[in-house]
Simulated assay, not measured.
Amino acid sequence: MASMLSRLIIFPTPPSLIVSVMSVVSLVVIAGLGVSEILGKHMLYSKFWNLNPEKSSRKQIKLSSRTGMLVLYVPAFLSGAVSFVLYPNHDLRLFLVKATLTIHFFKRVVEVLCVHKYSSSAVVLDSAIPISSSYFSATSTMIYGQYLTQGFPEPQLDLKYPGILLFLLGIIGNFYHHQVLASLRTKDDKEYKIPKGGLFDLVVCPHYLFEVLGFIGIFFISQTLYSFCFTLGTIVYLIGRSYATRRWYLSKFEDFPKDVKALIPCVF
């Protein structure tokens, strides 16, 4: 049954030990980070940069929020951009995978530079390095794995066109809600506020919800085992991160509305 399902929606796995190993590693590691968020062990950036109860005895290197976020996203963006030179071709699916990943991280860089307004929080280097490495390796592996499918039989169900629509919905919705968050602060305002507007009245992390939709769209375009594993791991991570974010707002604001969910309106 599983084999039949995989043939229906996923390319045959190319004979690459690197791609096979990275598929398992990405799923286990990224999903594990999501579970850690639920358990209260956070990646140290944004509002959680100083919340972990266990303090390390060695001195932590802190980056400004803007610098730290650029460290997170620039390597993955460069990986996507360089892939157009490394893997030139006329295959539509490979082109779309390269384009969507490059656009996704280019948008992130633009938001860091032009949209986000930062609090007094920071990004701890010990968290920035693994996150940046994860994004970079995921982008590189997903594109390489797609390149290896050249000449393989296509999945029976072609999902790339619904994937394009989901990706566009995800990236537009994510960008819009980042703008809503940014509008909550004036230039010199460093304090967190209860977010309002858009889907923030229903869930505390609609930007994560649209990010999930965007990555599902990339999987639909790619239809490889690696993209499935990375997307599934990312969904688990964002579920954990949104759960932790809602818990943080409830602890910080007595008037935070209890009916606002974490990620999925009226459900979770």
Rank of each mutant, 00 (worst) to 15 (best):
F136N: 00
L209F: 15
F48D: 04
L27M: 10
D201R: 05
A31Y: 09
E211C: 06
A128S: 12
K193M: 04
Y192S: 12
W49N: 10
C114E: 07
L63G: 08
L148N: 06
P206E: 07
P75A: 09
Y208Q: 09
L199S: 04
D158P: 02
E54Q: 12
K160L: 14
Y147N: 14
L165H: 04
Y87S: 01
S65I: 01
F210V: 02
W248S: 08
R247Y: 05
N89K: 07
I38P: 00
A138Q: 13
S46L: 05
M142F: 04
I264N: 05
K190F: 14
K196G: 05
L113M: 13
L166M: 15
G198R: 00
K62E: 15
Q60E: 15
Y144C: 11
K98V: 02
K160F: 13
V110M: 12
I30F: 11
E111F: 02
L168K: 03
W248Q: 07
R241D: 08
S183T: 11
T139L: 00
K55R: 15
F253E: 12
A122C: 12
F230S: 00
D259S: 15
G68E: 07
T100P: 01
L63V: 11
V85H: 07
C229L: 06
G80F: 00
F77S: 07
T186E: 15
V29M: 13
M43L: 14
H177P: 05
K187N: 12
D259T: 12
I18K: 07
V236E: 04
P88G: 11
G214Y: 10
L225A: 14
N50W: 03
K98H: 09
F105I: 03
G233Q: 03
S183L: 09
I171A: 05
R241V: 00
L113P: 02
F200A: 02
I131H: 01
P153I: 10
D255F: 02
S46W: 15
K55I: 12
I129T: 10
D126C: 09
L202R: 12
C266I: 08
V123Y: 02
T186V: 03
T13V: 11
V28L: 15
Q223T: 09
K47N: 01
S132Y: 10
S79F: 04
A244C: 04
Y147F: 14
K62M: 11
D91K: 05
T245N: 08
I129F: 10
M43A: 09
P153G: 08
K258D: 15
P130L: 11
L159K: 05
Y226A: 01
T67Y: 09
L86Q: 12
I143K: 00
L33R: 06
I221T: 02
T234W: 05
G80T: 06
V19K: 04
K160C: 07
C229D: 03
C229S: 14
Q223K: 06
S134H: 13
I131N: 01
L33M: 14
K55D: 09
Q179N: 14
T13S: 15
V71K: 01
S227R: 01
F77K: 00
L78Q: 03
S64P: 08
G217Y: 10
S133C: 14
P206F: 13
Y135I: 05
K117Q: 13
G240R: 01
V97C: 12
S227G: 08
Y176P: 01
R58V: 14
K252V: 14
A99Y: 07
G217T: 04
D158E: 13
E111M: 07
Q179F: 09
V212W: 00
